[in-house]
Structure formats: C-alpha cells, structure tokens
Simulated assay, not measured.
Amino acid sequence: MNTFGNSHIIKQIATQSGFDYCGIARALPLDEDARRLETWLNKGYNGNMQYMENHFELRINPQKLVPGAKSVITLLLNYYPADIPTAGRDVPKISKYAWGNDYHEVIKAKLRSFIEEIKLRIGDVHGRGFVDSAPVLERAWAQRSGLGWIGKNGNLINKQSGSFFFIATLIVDIELEYDDPLAKDFCGTCTKCIDACPTNAILDNRVVDGSKCISYYTIELKDALIPDNMKGKFDNWMFGCDVCQDVCPWNRFSSPTTETRFTPIPEILDFTKENWEELTEESFKKIFRHSPLKRSKFQGIKRNLKFITKA
C-alpha cells in the first residue's frame, strides 16, 4: 500500500473512531517553535508549571520522543456542549471542556482502538498516542498538518468549526502522505480575545502569559493561595476560563459535540452558588469522579470558590 493509500485509511479510521478532524505532518524537529518556547520559558510565563521546562528536547523533536518516528498524526475532538446554562446566573463558572467526563479517559480509549485498527488494516505500525500528558507541542503539529492556525489567544482555531476542540497526537514510524501546513492566519486585526481577557494574560504576537491566566490560578496553581492582586478579576470563574474563546468570532461556527461522554454532568448545569458552597468532600468525589474537576481536588475547588465569592 502506498503512502497515499495508508493516509486515506488512517483518515477513514479517525472518522470511524469519532474524531472530527485528522491531519498528518512529517516528523521533523520544530526548530522555530523551540525558539518560541525557550523565550516563553525564559520570561517566566509558565509560572509554577515547572513541568513545562522538563524534557525540552523531547518537546521539540518527535524522533527523540518516539525513536524511528516518521509521521505525526493530529486528531481533533469537538467538546462544545449542546446545553448551555442561561447567562446571568450568579453561579461559579466552569470551563466548557470540564462539563462532561474527563477528556483524558475518553480520548485515551479512542486512541487505543484507533492504533489497533491501524495495525489491523495497514500492518506493522509502531507508535505512541498522546493527549495532553506528554511533552508534545500539539498545537504546532495541528497547524503543520493543516487543521487550523494558532490564534492570538494561543488556541488552535479551525476555520470551519472554531476552537472548542481537544487535540490528540499519534506519532508513528511509517511514511505517509502529508497535508499542507496552514500558512495563513485568519485572526486579522481582531483583538477581541486580548481586550476581553479579565487578567490581561494575552499579550502581543500570540503570546499568553500563563502565570496570569485564570485557568492557571484555578487549576495549575497547587497548594498555594491565589494572589490578592487578582481579587475581583476572575469574573466568577471557579475552574478554568472560556472568555477568550467565547468572544472569538470564529466560534460562531461551533456546533454541539456528538461524543456522549462529554454530555454535561447535571450538577454542572444545575448547581446554585449555595449548592457549591454546601458541597461535601464525599459528595464531590462521588459526583465528579469522572470529571476534570477532580484535578483541582476538593480543597482546590473550595479555595477557588472562596476566592471568587470573597472578591
């Protein structure tokens, strides 16, 4: 089977596996992205996220991450919910990606079946799949495989469907037909995401100061108090933040996900402010056992809740 045929099979399997988009790029060192990442780290934009400094060589070179790597397959999975709570409710806000089951669990299961099906239909293919849990610059690979461009808010934006996507990466040891990188940026002169960011975390030249991002404070910042100078700036966000995506004009093309496991947990849509304040650790563990919220743990959610209600 030639590279074109194999690529066609892989994209067929991606669709059958429930992924919304699939793009393929040649596995090469990401030299330009390496320079950008080094500058970003040197300026301390990763805050307390020390893991961003680890395995630098693996992040920028897929052949060091997966020996013998020849191709990088990027998969997008839409998570935009069908049910959106009525605006104006005085309740703690949660980023849309966390409304249903933990995407790590959902996508890892999809990747396992995806890889097995590739082996069944193509043959002896070796590789590794990743979803937000390894040193992979997934947005760079998505752009290189023609799936979108990196917007001013740092998110991958797809021209047909916006930015409410999870990105999964599969690095394999076979040559494939490669998609053309998306060379054009369609943000133009729009600055809506920059203007709307509550903490001024979005800088010029598609740089996001992670150490100022609400998602960083509410999820990544562990065992520490949120700085007082952030009081009154969180706009009621308790876990993550969607402001820069909600204002993005390209997200008018977002459509509801077909992945049933991303169906919002009823409590996410129905809880009042009082429900959150009265939540016990036992109830938290039961209700959110399959939710991304468990990443912040009960104490982290309580800390965030206290911070936004006392602001």
Rank of each mutant, 00 (worst) to 15 (best):
Thr3Arg: 14
Phe4Gly: 00
Ile10Cys: 04
Ile13Tyr: 10
Phe19Ala: 06
Ala34Gly: 14
Arg36Tyr: 03
Glu38Cys: 02
Glu57Ala: 09
Leu58Glu: 15
Pro62Gly: 07
Lys64Pro: 02
Ala69Asp: 08
Ser71Asp: 12
Leu76Glu: 02
Thr86Cys: 02
Thr86Pro: 00
Asp90Phe: 15
Gly100Gln: 04
Glu105Ser: 13
Ser113Trp: 11
Phe114Val: 11
Glu116Asp: 15
Gly123Asp: 02
Val125Asn: 07
Ala134Ile: 03
Leu147Tyr: 08
Gly148Thr: 06
Trp149Met: 11
Ile150Tyr: 02
Gly151Arg: 09
Lys152Ser: 11
Asn153Glu: 03
Asn153Ala: 03
Gly162Trp: 09
Phe164Met: 12
Thr169Lys: 11
Glu175Cys: 03
Asp185Ala: 01
Thr191Asp: 12
Asp195Ile: 08
Thr199Arg: 04
Asn200Gly: 12
Asn205Ile: 01
Asn205Ala: 13
Val207Tyr: 01
Leu221Lys: 08
Asp223Arg: 12
Lys231Arg: 14
Val243Met: 10
Asp246Lys: 11
Cys248Tyr: 08
Arg252Glu: 14
Phe253Thr: 13
Arg261Lys: 15
Pro266Asn: 07
Glu274Lys: 12
Glu282Asn: 14
Ser283Ile: 01
Phe284Cys: 05
Arg289Trp: 00
Gly300Glu: 05
Ile301Thr: 01
Asn304Val: 06
Ile308Gly: 12
Ala311Met: 10
